[in-house]
């Protein structure tokens, strides 16, 4: 594969506004607005190299090196960029079977990931392995509703982290899915799982009211929504008060753009998810005026294709 010439075909979101002659960002180019760019992935599942070209579904798509190039370009264009993953970093290609997550974490560290949630498959190499990878990562793993007391993961994760960008305070917290039926019972049974709805509300309220965050982001591995009665991003969005954005995972849902929900106060909550395997990079941009008021969210999805041409 390395001998092939690879190209990235970037299908970037070009705003309708551009189509109508108004450059979306130029309209707010004045100093009174601060721009924040959120980039996100989920369920990358050890897809370090693109899918093989003979894959029936995703030929040549994805790949860390291409995603890294897109991220680097965006960082060159934007001043305030945060990059998140919503879990299931591990498991899915032999990279994980052979190296237990070491390359995934090394590359994510190099790509400048700012934080990650924990997915059920991130436990597939065992708790000690995950603890080792978290220590190697150099970026925080966030999970507010797993209590790891007495396990090898005790003290390795954080419920939330507050990022400061250009005077903005961005509160980010993580949610993990109920382990039962998804994580090896030997591991799942020693995780004390807390109700995500309660934890989300308490954590978001703390970040908003006590810590004065301007934007609150939830990195969720709960899944987008379910037919059956099961907590999901949709449920969290509708029962929350202070979450602004939920960057989701687990259900491998390709949302072409974030879906807006009303929370219990009648405010908007955006729920985003970018499928899986690093086929897309999600992007949401926020504008804040000088009073720190979020004005507009613009969303773009970078689709990461590899139009490999055989040499």
């Amino acid at each position: 594969m390395s001998s092939r010439r690879s190209f990235i075909r970037r299908i970037a979101g070009a705003s309708v506004l551009i189509g109508t002659g108004l450059s979306s960002w130029d309209a707010f180019g004045s100093a009174e607005f601060t721009r924040l760019t959120i980039l996100h992935t989920n369920d990358v599942h050890s897809r370090i190299d693109p899918f093989p070209m003979n894959d029936p579904k995703y030929p040549g798509m994805g790949g860390f090196a291409r995603r890294a190039a897109v991220i680097r370009r965006i960082r060159g264009e934007e001043q305030n960029v945060l990059l998140f993953d919503s879990g299931d970093i591990f498991q899915g290609t032999p990279y994980f079977n052979l190296f237990n997550g070491e390359p995934e974490i090394r590359l994510m560290r190099e790509m400048g990931y700012d934080a990650s949630a924990i997915g059920n498959h991130d436990f597939d190499g065992g708790m000690e392995n995950l603890a080792l990878r978290i220590r190697e990562a150099g970026f925080p793993f966030l999970c507010a509703n797993y209590d790891f007391t007495g396990t090898p993961l005790q003290g390795t994760t954080h419920p939330f982290h507050i990022f400061k960008k250009d005077g903005l305070k961005i509160g980010v917290f993580g949610l993990g899915i109920e382990p039962k039926g998804l994580i090896d019972p030997k591991i799942g049974d020693i995780i004390h799982y807390l109700n995500p709805v309660d934890v989300a509300n308490k954590t978001a309220a703390y970040l908003k009211l006590e810590r004065g965050c301007d934007l609150i982001i939830c990195l969720s591995h709960l899944g987008y929504k379910y037919k059956e009665d099961k907590v999901s991003d949709e449920v969290i969005a509708q029962t929350s008060s202070y979450i602004d954005v939920i960057l989701g995972a687990h259900t491998h849902t390709f949302l072409d753009q974030p879906v807006s929900y009303k929370n219990i106060l009648g405010n908007d909550v955006l729920v985003a998810q970018t499928g899986w395997a690093g086929i897309r990079l999600g992007r949401i941009d926020f504008l804040f005026d000088s009073k720190r008021r979020k004005s507009v969210a613009l969303t773009l999805h970078e689709k990461i294709f590899d139009c490999t041409i055989p040499s």
């Binding site: 299908i11 507009v296 969303t299």
Partner: peptide, 24 residues
Amino acid sequence: SFELAGTTDHQYMMNDSTQHEIDS
């Protein structure tokens, strides 16, 4: 203060631009 005033309609045209870009 601090409320999300709104979002765009999220109807973006996809721009089919090809790049020769990998992070080596």
